[in-house]
Design a protein around this nucleic acid. Structure first.
Lengths: 167, 167
DNA sequence: TTTCATGCAAAATGTTTGCACACGA
DNA sequence: TCGTGTGCAAACATTTTGCATGAAA
């Protein structure tokens, strides 16, 4: 897929781990076992997750020490502050995704299966800046979530419906 | 103000109260004192509010019976379900605003004074629909919040800064 | 006179905090 | 060693729920 709304890519000089170490250093914080486990787990694959998802994944990692709930929350806050993760609130819980080294984007949110589909739009950013200029507003960030039903769930519904119709 | 991003207006046949009564009727629900007080308070003026704001306003209404916290929450949910209010989550709490009879819009959110500035953009809706079409996604709604610092707060900062500079 | 609605208190949810102990630099 | 980080338990803030009582229709 490479069209108007596809995500580009971002070049970064250092790995998330390296960047996190720099951040910790700059703040006089220590690079502990828990912080290492957290960043390894979080950047082992790209997806959207909340604190509970992360806790569950960590619990599966047999052998290695686990990370407690408070430390997971504290760690996520640090990763956001370090610019490595981006946080959004969806249905009353905080959902995180990669930020560092990942192109800026917005989301389609399927209210049926809870899936998040990413897209990017330059035009959207242009509108954002135009609206802000109009109001003398200094933009920090923006968040657009389009809610609805994804293609897969629409098809699921259609199948279910035609099955009912046949009875 | 009447430009690209200003809000139009919406014509509606009935008042919020009338519409609420219809909704209650259709659901076999009763038009109680509490529901009357709630809708009167909520539609007495246009702004953004959360459950606590509403509870505080209700507490000020001397004389008239007050409405309990659970009933306020239940009532707000009903008003959203009835299409009278729109709900959004901002900083961990639910914020409500008029929906019925009020034009669709998005928000600039000042992270300094917490103010919400409304704007409308046809272009944004066009982008939303184009992205959705691209993904075979059926749009239910969307929510765009642009976070940053409003003009007034920027000026406040500037004044504070120059005051410090003079020392 | 039958439901449905309310208020109270308690529970649930997601997240944060105080504190004693553990550990990285 | 020193001071930061951790885990535990408890606190927290917001919202929801069970249930006995109260009030619409």
């Amino acid at each position: 897929m490479s069209n108007e709304f596809s995500l580009g890519s971002v070049q970064v000089a250092s790995t998330p781990l390296e960047r996190f170490e720099e951040y910790l250093q700059s703040k006089g914080k220590r690079f502990t076992q828990q912080r290492r486990i957290l960043i390894e787990q979080v950047f082992s694959h790209h997806d959207h997750f909340d604190a509970d998802d992360l806790l569950a994944l960590l619990a599966e990692r047999v052998g290695s020490r686990t990370v407690s709930r408070p430390t997971v929350y504290r760690g996520l806050a640090e990763l956001v502050e370090a610019g490595l993760l981006r946080k959004m609130v969806l249905g009353g819980r905080s959902v995180y995704e990669h930020d560092y080294g990942y192109p800026s984007h917005d989301h389609l949110h399927c209210t049926e299966c809870n899936d998040l589909i990413e897209f990017h739009s330059e035009q959207l950013e242009a509108i954002r800046d135009a609206v802000a200029r109009e109001h003398g507003f200094r933009v920090g960030s923006h968040r657009l979530i389009i809610s609805g039903i994804c293609q897969a769930c629409q098809e699921k519904r259609r199948r279910k419906k035609s099955r009912l119709d046949r009875i």
